[in-house]
């Protein structure tokens, strides 16, 4: 396959960036999108140019490190992560636009790499449970109803990649935050911090400069793990409930 890439290049956080056009040849349809970028980078290095910086780690679709907005869609045209997106989703001769995640809370570090540490700070504000350390407790000591376990697992699938923020017209982190809140709030292990968790995590989310939710639904469409839009509905319910109870 022969492709034309238009890639966002930006030297550092303070520099002005812009789209640069590259032609790549000899791309196999079985390559992943990241392998295609590796091919481009090898060529750039041989020519003595700076390679394109992009985030990646496991390349198995489970770590949440890879990002990239491809042709205006977070993680590209398929419902998966960029590392699991294959070049067979494109056609020979295509022009592909590659941009970084765009949000005030995700500043560009270089080229396609953005700083997603705002997500870490949201997790630090309440995305945990208080549990004694040591040997794992007996699994049946705390019964969890099957529907609750399913709901928790559905939300636990979030890998924190930030595609929801990138896709949202308001740069909102509601889908991420709701996945993390609901995952723990629905379980008995998360019950002691149930109210504090949602209040603190939403508070942190707002402080980080993410936008609000207008229920455009772009986040759930972009999410590679299929976190549903109703995750946000559930968090809204949790928030009002917690705000009511927190004065006690």
């Amino acid at each position: 396959m022969k492709l034309t890439l238009r890639v966002w290049r930006q030297r550092d956080a303070d520099a002005d960036g812009g789209m640069t056009t590259y032609d790549v040849d000899g791309i196999s349809p079985d390559m992943s999108f990241l392998e295609m970028l590796d091919t481009l980078n090898e060529e750039l290095i041989l020519k003595g140019d700076d390679p394109v910086a992009f985030d990646h780690d496991c390349r198995e679709g489970i770590c949440g490190a890879c990002s990239l907005v491809i042709n205006g869609e977070a993680h590209g045209p398929e419902r998966t992560t960029t590392c699991q997106l294959h070049m067979r989703s494109f056609r020979d001769g295509d022009t592909i636009d590659v941009e970084p995640w765009r949000a005030a809370a995700f500043p560009v570090v270089r080229d396609l790499v953005v700083d997603r540490s705002a997500f870490d700070r949201i997790i630090q504000s309440g995305g945990y449970i208080t549990a004694p350390t040591g040997a794992a407790p007996e699994a049946h000591a705390t019964p969890v109803p099957k529907p609750d376990a399913d709901t928790a697992f559905e939300h636990a699938e979030c890998i924190g990649c930030g595609a929801c923020v990138a896709a949202c017209p308001n740069g909102s982190a509601m889908l991420f935050t709701s996945a993390k809140v609901n995952h723990l709030n629905v379980l008995p292990q998360g019950a002691p911090e149930r109210e504090a968790r949602v209040l603190d995590m939403v508070g942190r989310m707002d402080d980080e400069g993410f936008g609000g939710c207008t229920l455009a639904g772009e986040c759930a469409t972009a999410c590679p793990k299929g976190i549903p839009l109703f995750s946000i509905t559930r968090m809204n319910r949790e928030y009002v409930r917690a705000a009511r109870k927190s004065r006690r």
Binding site: W8, A104, N170, G171, G209
Partner: peptide, 20 residues
């Protein structure tokens, strides 16, 4: 919301409904 998304994408793709 506008402040939270200061730079637009070069490649635009509006998928939300007209009402939204």
């Amino acid at each position: 919301d506008i402040k939270a998304r200061p730079s637009k994408y070069v490649h635009k793709k509006a998928r939300t409904s007209y009402a939204t």
